[in-house]
């Protein structure tokens, strides 16, 4: 098995998000040196690499949290992601941060809808009257579509276990995402069983037709859940493998620079 060309798709899925020639430097440090990456609709792509390889920076550029020095990020519909974190969210890019960014005192429902509140129809908008019933119905439906069964969406997030919180954060991202969901280390802080449940959840996200890009160090689970594994090294994509047939040794070799760095010149 040889690494494939990073700009080619493994199959003919239409793209959910494409990052092209992204460059970014912080002071003298070149975090990204022309990284290119695409995720298809319904596809799960895993981003791996050593610490400092540029994974997190690339993800931040793709969700619009960081403006690149050069290059562009384009969504499936041809929409460009501009820096300024809410533009990407408005454009349908969902992000699950490693710290989840949930408000512990608020309920599952309130966390899912925070910043996207449904207001009572027929009432003046400036009043900001919440339509809690509509939100509860939709939040339950969104959780159910992912196979998450909570008996009530009124429970405060502080009462949930780590896996449950991860599930809520993913459900929230999926609820507002229209093309792609980016996940940063979704299983890092979880026990074995909860991590397996979250992996199943990620599969369900892709089954809904969204593209999924995840950063993780959990190679075993990555190989099980991802369609494609993209290896980054020194701020660029070093290699890509179909997850089904790649070996751990091949991935590690690419991470450490043993394989020809096809993507570095892009």
């Amino acid at each position: 098995m040889h690494p494939t060309n990073p700009t080619a798709h493994t199959d003919a899925r239409s793209p959910a998000i494409v990052a092209h020639g992204i460059r970014k430097h912080y002071g003298h440090v070149e975090a990204l040196r022309g990284a290119s990456l695409s995720v298809g609709l319904g596809e799960i792509v895993a981003l791996v690499g050593d610490n400092g390889a540029g994974k997190s920076t690339l993800m931040k550029v793709m969700c619009g949290a960081v403006a690149p020095d050069a290059g562009e990020v384009v969504l499936g519909g041809g929409l460009r992601v501009e820096a300024g974190r809410f533009n990407a969210a408005d454009a349908g890019v969902g992000v699950v941060y490693q710290d989840l960014a949930l408000a512990p005192h608020l309920s599952v429902l309130e966390n899912i809808y925070l910043g996207h509140e449904s207001l009572m129809p027929g009432r003046p908008r400036w009043l900001g009257l919440l339509d809690r019933r509509a939100m509860a119905g939709e939040a339950e439906a969104a959780l159910r579509r992912l196979g998450i069964a909570l008996p009530t969406v009124e429970v405060p997030v502080s009462l949930l276990s780590g896996g449950q919180r991860q599930a809520v954060a993913i459900a929230r991202a999926v609820k507002w995402a229209r093309s792609v969901v980016l996940l940063d280390e979704p299983t890092a802080s979880l026990g074995t069983r909860q991590a397996d449940i979250v992996v199943e959840l990620i599969r369900n996200v892709a089954r809904q037709g969204l593209g999924v890009l995840l950063i993780s160090h959990d190679m075993d689970r990555l190989k099980r859940v991802a369609d494609r594994i993209v290896v980054m090294r020194r701020g660029a994509v070093a290699a890509e493998f179909p997850a089904a047939s790649v070996t751990l040794a091949q991935i590690v070799e690419a991470m450490l620079g043993g394989v020809s760095t096809v993507g570095a010149a892009a």
Partner: peptide, 24 residues
């Protein structure tokens, strides 16, 4: 209890970072 303002007020105090990222 009934308005977006109330919900976002609680969010600010519960997790400022979560509120910021949610666009409050």
């Amino acid at each position: 209890n009934r308005t977006r303002f109330g919900l976002q007020t609680l969010a600010l105090g519960s997790s400022r970072e979560a509120a910021v990222r949610a666009g409050v």
